[in-house]
Amino acid sequence: MKVVAGVAGAAAAGAVVVPAVAVVGAAANAPRLPGRPPGSDDGWRTVARWEQLAVGTPLQAHVIGAEVDAWNVSPDRRLGTVWLLRGGEGPETLRALSAVCPHLGCLIDHTERGFVCPCHNSDFSARGAALRGPSPRSMDPIEARVRDGRVEVRWARFRLGGAERIREEG
């Protein structure tokens, strides 16, 4: 009798708790919407035109696209901000850096001293290498290309605060 009481009680409690905990845990993995499977969008977004870029002068550009957050899909949202660098004549000299500071995620400015994060004074070189301040790593590179005169980037976010560069999925 004691065993029956114990086992039945534990089973009943488990039947209630397990699915409840599982659903809370599942949402932590931010499942994708079924109508937007992986690969349904190649991620390339136009941010500028090649002719707008001048050698030696970084251009700040916003990545605009649809933001998916749980069940909400908001078109024309600012997904992020990049700095575009043109190294020379050809489109192969294009480089894009995320404007998100790897330290705590503030937006990096460009001043006469180079790239500077205004929040905690992290300094970066003209090519984005960390020089001084609390940033644990250099500015994060973003995939970029030129297509028919359009500068396109593939926006990505990276985990903040660590020396290792880990791409955040979802």
Partner: peptide, 17 residues
Amino acid sequence: QRLLVGGAHFGQFTLTR
């Protein structure tokens, strides 16, 4: 962090959680 935020980014699930 993921459990509290409900994924990698602050958003809808952060609020409901």
